[in-house]
Amino acid sequence: MHIKPGEFVSVLGPNGAGKTTLLKVLTLLTPPSEGQVHIAGRKVSEEQLALRKKMGVISHNTFLYANLTAYENLLFYGRMYDVPRLKDRVKEVISEVGLQYSLNDPVRTFSRGMQQRLAIARAIVHNPDILFLDEPYTGLDQHAIKILNQVLLSLTNQDRTIFLITHNFEQGLSMSDRIVILVKGKIVCEMPGKDLTLEDLQKTYLKCVGEK
């Protein structure tokens, strides 16, 4: 599998297809059992810290500390990524997700949608070149979905690479350059996303998964 810089790739597949495992391998959380991963021309096993700096991850888990405020969470993660002019950057991303009025509230008081919006801010606070998303639409309200799509659109316009894992055909299709269907750890179908209709995708998906 080869992903070009600036490309938006969505991965679809049934439960147990290995989508999350693939994401764990690509985000350097798990070493691959076989094969190799190269990111930006670098072998990931050799330059993990430098490569992690280029990545952002949004998952259905928020990775947020419930007893810290929104501001403290972003400050903490920003420091971990050595973000320059961090305080300004925190204010910028918090406004981007529409939580500027809840900056000093503890995350435990946030609704699920607000937490997920803050998780988006956390994932982009260091301006990552590559954004990985694992089922990011799970549990999101309409407002949060709109914000997530805006962030993704803005990153796409900045030529950032986006790798989305989803069950949601509609969301997966809307911005994707390419759609990949994974079954039992293998890529069974790959197709360009731009001119594909939702109906075509559903038919192709059923065919690919069914055949396997």
């Binding site: 959380l29 992690r52 700096k53 998952s59 888990n61 990775f63 947020l64 419930a66 993660y77 971990m80």
Partner: peptide, 15 residues
């Protein structure tokens, strides 16, 4: 383990 923050920590560029 709450909100999988340990995973969040492991994703950061830190030894």
């Amino acid at each position: 383990k709450q909100n999988e923050t340990l995973t969040g920590l492991m994703l950061t560029p830190v030894d």
